[in-house]
């Protein structure tokens, strides 16, 4: 199984990673090798194997529905690049 240059560029776009064309060619080759390696596992019969959702064999503890957090907005916003009237500000995004 191989991965195309277009796929590398599409994935880097979705992950918001800047990858230039030259690097992308290399990634396409490397990723194809990794996939080919993973492909070997297809030879194993996994029909009766339940996919593992988590490496730990424990179950999710549940939390009581109680509000214990207090307002720490000032603290959090101290590390934000820009805020105004309590809002975090980011470059305009609208679809």
């Amino acid at each position: 199984m191989s991965i195309s240059l277009e796929e590398v560029l599409q994935i880097s776009y979705l992950a918001r990673l800047h990858v230039d064309e030259e690097q992308a060619v290399q990634y396409a080759a490397d990723l194809s090798k990794i996939l080919a390696w993973v492909q070997q596992m297809n030879q194993v019969d996994t029909r009766d194997i339940v996919p593992m959702a988590h490496p730990l064999d424990v179950i999710q503890p549940l939390r009581e529905d109680k509000v214990t957090e207090t307002d720490q907005r000032e603290k959090f916003q101290a590390i934000a690049p820009r805020t105004d009237r309590g809002l975090y500000l980011v470059p305009k995004v609208i679809e």
């Binding site: 509000v67 957090e69 307002d71 959090f76 309590g86 809002l87």
Partner: peptide
């Protein structure tokens, strides 16, 4: 209609001042 959020203990009440109910 829970009191707190699905994965945190911050309040879900509607209409609070912006970002006063958003925890870490």
């Amino acid at each position: 209609a829970t009191q707190s959020k699905i994965f945190s203990a911050a309040s879900t009440a509607f209409g609070a001042e912006p970002n006063t109910q958003a925890c870490a």
